[in-house]
Every structure is written in C-alpha cells, then in structure tokens.
C-alpha cells in the first residue's frame, strides 16, 4: 500500500519513516512525500494513481490541503483514493469543510501515530 504524505514541513518525512520503520521494512507500507499541494498533484499525475491513500496537511503555502482534496476528489473517481487531512487547526470550520469535500478522516497535530497506524491498517485491510 502506497501512502502519499503532503506537508510543507520537511521533517515530516524523517518522522514518518521512523514511526513506520517496521511497516516500511516489512514492505507492508510504502511512503512517498510531497512538500506542497502542487508537488502532490504532479506526483499523482506521474504515478497514475499509484497512491491509494493520501495524508495531507491543510495549511500550506500555495494550494492548500483543502483545495488539493477538492481537486483529487474531482479528478480521481475510480477507485476514489482515501484522503486523510492533518492540521494544526482543530477548528470546526476546517473540519466541516474537509468532510464536506469528501475527506475520509480529519486528524489534528500533534499527531497520535498509534491512532494513525490503526486507521491506516484499517484502510489497508478493507
């Protein structure tokens, strides 16, 4: 299962690679990283929807995570990729907008990786 992580914070890559090192080592999960919404769209275009699960930050310069979510849900329909939003703002507006745009989940920073791991495994085995 390939997971695309989108965040403008570069350290997110090291964090995910360590937090999921066992899953990566065993080949259970594979991660790709994009540091902006634009990069994420290019990645999806090039990889031909290889990523089945996208984890995106909301607040990034340029295309925001919500805009990215809207474009992904508009462009990729069959099968629809799972998109989970991650944000440092746990406010209701962002949450509702994300859900309205078809987000599968809404997580807030600081991230609870144990919870995230369970969620990912849940999607993986579905």
């Amino acid at each position: 299962m390939k997971i695309l992580v989108v965040d403008d914070e570069k350290d997110i890559q090291a964090l995910f690679e360590q937090r999921f090192r066992k899953e990566i080592r065993s080949g259970e999960m594979e991660f790709a990283f994009a540091f902006s919404g634009e990069e994420a769209l290019i990645f999806l275009e090039d990889s031909g929807q290889e990523a089945v699960l996208i984890l995106s930050d909301i607040n990034m310069p340029g295309i925001s995570g919500l805009e990215l979510l809207r474009r992904i849900k508009e462009k990729y329909k069959e099968p629809p990729p799972i998109v989970m939003m991650i944000t440092a703002y746990g406010d209701n507006d962002n949450h509702q907008t994300a859900m309205h745009l078809g987000a599968n989940d809404f997580l807030t920073k600081p991230l609870d990786f144990n919870f995230l791991k369970e969620q990912l495994k849940g999607y993986l085995h579905d």
Binding site: E9, D11, L15, Q18, R19, N59, A88, Y89, T108, K109, P110, L111, F113
Partner: peptide, 20 residues
C-alpha cells in the same frame, strides 16, 4: 491562530520524535 498553528507544528515533531 497563527501562533497556535506555529506552536503545534514544532510540538508535533517534539512529541513524536521523542516517542519514536
């Protein structure tokens, strides 16, 4: 709000890098 966001981001790394 900007400050909250800017603190939660580093906090995310502090918490998670220490746990890991």
């Amino acid at each position: 709000a900007g400050i909250a966001h800017e603190i939660k981001n580093p906090l995310n790394f502090v918490n998670n890098f220490s746990e890991v």
